[in-house]
Computed example of a mutant assay.
Amino acid sequence: MVHKKSFGEHAFDITNVVLLFTLSAVTLYPIVYVLFASISDPNQFVQHRGILWWPAGFSLDSYKMVFENPNILNSYLNTLFYVIAGTTLNMVMTALGAYGLSRRNVMWGSLIMILIVLTMFFDGGLIPKYLIVQGLGLTDTYLALIIPSAMTTWNLIVMRTAFQSVPVSLEEAARIDGANDWTILCRVVIPLSMPVMAVMILFYGVWHWNKWFDALIYLRDRDLFPLQLILREILVQNDTNSMMTSVGGGDRMPVAQTIKYATVMVATLPILFLYPFLQKYFVKGVMVGAIKE
């Protein structure tokens, strides 16, 4: 029997479609605006007023200046190192901690978990953290952005809950076959928790990619700066002079505007390209890690 929708159901469907379309447009337009502005002709762009529906002229000179800037390229490589090394360490530490705390026969496991959760509500503050990093000799090193943030409490809780959902019978069967904890973790628990692992990689990767405050606090050597800190200098401090050495004085202001948008696109595109590959794991991974059956 075919169900015939009532007037109220049709009205709800139409309202839902309009609302979702509006939200999508509001979310997408800032990205489209930055993209169009970055490829616009600088002189035509600064004269444009109102909504930008298409590029004002066309020019890739801003991207050329961005990629010719040695600070951008060096900071890009630094950020890639921070993302890869930091995410790898995060995943190893979080997986080890989550596996140990998810086992049902761990001594004082509940007490340890309570102490870990308390760190979400109580923090020593910036100055004690800086003194610890300085005392360990990590300031002005790559490790200053990796070691202090080796694991986050929330991600540990999510992964621990996901590991707890793995059937105990599988662990018992593996132990009967002679498997130790390393084998159970690597060959049983992690393969069955791949959606959560993928989401954790995304969370940690985006976190490292966008992180700039720690670099501002711990780093003084510009050769170690991540991309986001250079981006902050360009957008907040309006420092674009190093990229406009070949631009005449009268054209500097228009070119500086498009350079800012081009830099934003260069800093954002890698993360935008990463999302589609992990999207299929995203919802499933978060739900598995957040709900215990």
Rank of each mutant, 00 (worst) to 15 (best):
T119L: 04
E172Y: 05
Y142I: 11
S246L: 11
L224S: 10
I132A: 15
G248I: 07
A150K: 08
F213Y: 12
G205C: 00
T141R: 10
L145M: 14
V133H: 06
P191E: 08
L170P: 03
A144P: 02
I217S: 01
D181K: 10
K129P: 00
M194F: 02
G125W: 06
K129Y: 01
G205A: 11
L115S: 14
S169G: 13
T152N: 15
L235E: 08
Y130W: 14
R232S: 03
I147T: 09
L143R: 08
I132M: 11
R175W: 06
L126W: 04
L118K: 08
F121I: 10
I176T: 13
G135L: 01
S242E: 04
F203T: 04
A198K: 09
P226E: 06
D251N: 08
V117I: 15
T183K: 09
M197F: 15
S165P: 02
R175C: 07
L231D: 03
R160S: 06
G124V: 09
T119W: 01
N180K: 13
T245G: 07
I146E: 12
R220H: 15
L231Q: 12
I190W: 02
A198D: 09
L231F: 03
D223W: 02
E233Y: 02
P167D: 06
D221P: 04
R252V: 03
L227G: 02
F163W: 04
D140W: 06
F213G: 05
M194R: 05
Q237N: 14
L192H: 11
W209F: 12
I234R: 07
T240F: 00
W154F: 15
L216Y: 03
R160V: 00
K129D: 04
T183V: 06
M243H: 05
A174N: 08
R252N: 03
V206C: 03
I234C: 02
L185Y: 00
L224P: 03
V206G: 00
C186F: 05
K211A: 07
M197G: 08
R252Q: 10
W212N: 06
R232P: 01
T119F: 07
I184L: 09
L227Q: 10
